[in-house]
Structures are given as C-alpha cells and as structure tokens.
Design a protein around this nucleic acid. Structure first.
Length: 125
DNA sequence: ATCCTGACTTGAC
DNA sequence: GGTCAAGCCAGGA
C-alpha cells in the first residue's frame, strides 16, 4: 500500500485524551537513536491527523515541562530541520543528529526516508 | 472576548 | 520539480 489517502476518523479530543502534549513527548521519546520521525507521523499516530502543528507546539512546551525529549529527532515531512532555530543554538539540532550518526546536509536529513521512524508502523506492528 | 502567529501537511496549479 | 492556499488547534497580545 502506497499510502492511505486520508481518513481522519473520529478525532479523539475528549477530556480524557487531553494529555495530547504528553502523548507527543512519549512518542518522541520512543524514537530510536539514529532515527527520525515527522510531526505529522506523531500527530497521525495520536489521531489528531492534520493538527501536526500542535506537535511542534508540544515540543516548545517540552522546554517548559523540563522533560527530556529528543526534539532533534523530529523533523518535518521533508526531513528538513525546521525547528533548529528554536534550539539553544541553531546548529545544536544538527550536531545532535550527527552525533547519532545521522547525516545532515543543508539542514536536511540525508536518507531521511530510510531513517524515518513511523510510530504507527513500528509501534502498531 | 477577538486577532495573529506558529518546530506542519497536503492537495491543487 | 516548483509555489499557493486552506485546514488545524493552542497561546499570547
């Protein structure tokens, strides 16, 4: 299957699943070393579907929550380090990735497709 | 309360 | 391969 067109299904935005941010952090923390994932993948895994922006927002909240989340392993669907500018230093994200043997060229993850870690595929396997 | 912005994604042109 | 516009929801002014 190439891909699923779409199917938002029911968005579980119940008071119970209000821990959206926590879920994001949890999933992000599950990303293996040397792998990367995308905001949309996490969002979809959580069932939010198109609200991938909130994932990024959750990352911003990470710093506030003092939780240890490898935000550098989360990039956009293109494999571009869009969030690098929000790190302590703009180059920190790339350095962290390179430290994990992830090659980054021109703010873009090399072999992103290969290193891509899909929570839905890996966790729901 | 409204309005604007944003670490995004996808479809259409 | 590009660019443009719309959908998404939470926070800050």
């Amino acid at each position: 299957m190439a891909k699923t067109p779409e199917k938002p299904k029911e968005v579980q935005y119940s008071p119970e699943s209000y821990s959206f941010f926590e879920n994001v952090w949890e999933v992000a923390r599950l990303v293996p070393k040397g792998r990367v994932t995308s905001y949309g993948a996490i969002a979809r895994y959580l069932g939010t579907g198109r609200s991938a922006r909130m994932v990024g927002w959750a990352m911003n909240a990470v710093d506030k929550s003092r939780l240890k989340v490898p935000a550098h392993r989360v990039v956009n669907s293109q494999g571009l380090l869009t969030g690098k500018h929000h790190f302590k230093t703009p180059d920190l994200m790339q350095e962290l990735l390179e430290k994990e043997k992830v090659k980054v060229k021109n703010d873009q993850v090399v072999d992103f497709k290969k290193l891509f870690w899909d929570p839905m595929k890996e966790l729901d396997l």
